[in-house]
């Protein structure tokens, strides 16, 4: 397995609580990796470390062979250009139309002619199943549509790594299914792209993921392919998988 992201002995504390506790983690290149765990286990903190939005208290973060731990703001800004991110609530800019939202990263970071940028916006919106939506405002969209626009915005600048922060949280089963399919399709269609999905939906991870990392108490409880999770005897993972309250898992 070739890793694109490596966490070496990462610790992150908020007050006295270590959310990530000497975490060693590897994310394979070109695959769909799910980082799962119950709420408060450090999934979002992990993603923020990957993006350089948080700095670890201890340990090193290596991305694509480069140690980004001590990057300054300007270096981080350059580094973040290799990412696309879909936020939990899509985080679309309300003051902009759908088209302007998707155009935003292109306008900021490329010198392409406007008509070419607009063509790419149109193409990306079609790719996520929302053609002819450019002129609508985010407030006119359903939750599922907002997510897809958010995904189009993340994809339009053709990132090397795409991060999904709980993409199906609060969605009905049909929209969840559609988003999961979209994740798989995007990873298949765009050559070399690495997808990292933060989720607490282990079933979706088993159906969609190619590699799964299960976080518990700031550490990895289990990491491997879906088949490893299906056959695991780990009581914590099995409890999470079954969705039962009774078991060895501690609730904060």
């Amino acid at each position: 397995m070739t890793s694109i992201i490596t966490f070496k002995n990462i610790t992150k504390r908020f007050g006295a609580r270590a959310v990530l506790d000497h975490l060693d983690l590897e994310i394979p290149r070109g695959k769909i990796t799910f980082i799962v765990g119950k709420s408060g286990e450090g999934k979002s903190v992990t993603i923020k470390h990957i993006m350089g939005l948080l700095k670890p208290d201890e340990g090193r973060i290596i991305v694509d062979g480069i140690d980004i731990t001590d990057f300054e703001q300007e270096e981080l800004r350059q580094y973040r250009k290799k990412f696309g991110m879909l936020f939990q609530q899509a985080a679309l800019f309300d003051s902009m139309t759908v088209g302007e939202n998707v155009l935003f990263p292109l306008k900021e970071h490329t010198k392409l002619p406007l008509d070419e940028m607009l063509k790419r916006v149109e193409m990306t919106l079609a790719q996520v199943g929302l053609p002819n939506m450019q002129h609508k405002f985010p407030t006119e969209l359903s939750t599922g549509e907002k997510k897809r626009v958010g995904l189009a915005r993340a994809l339009v600048s053709r990132p090397e790594i795409i991060l999904y922060d709980e993409p199906t949280t609060g969605m009905d089963p049909l929209v969840s299914e559609m988003i999961d399919e979209l994740i798989v399709r995007v990873n298949a269609e765009i050559e070399g792209i690495t997808s990292i999905v933060i989720s607490h939906d282990l079933k979706a991870a088993l159906a969609t993921g190619e590699y799964i990392i299960f976080l518990y108490k700031g550490k990895i409880a289990l990491a491997g392919a879906p088949k490893d999770f299906k056959s695991t005897k780990d009581p914590v993972v099995r409890q999470f998988f079954s969705g039962k309250v009774e078991g060895p898992m501690e609730f904060l």
């Binding site: 939005l53 800004r77 973040r80 990412f83 800019f93 990263p105 900021e108």
Partner: peptide, 17 residues
Amino acid sequence: TMRVNEQVDAMEAMAVD
């Protein structure tokens, strides 16, 4: 409002200060 709705985070994630 942009901050609490993660729009500022999105901006930072898109490498825009």
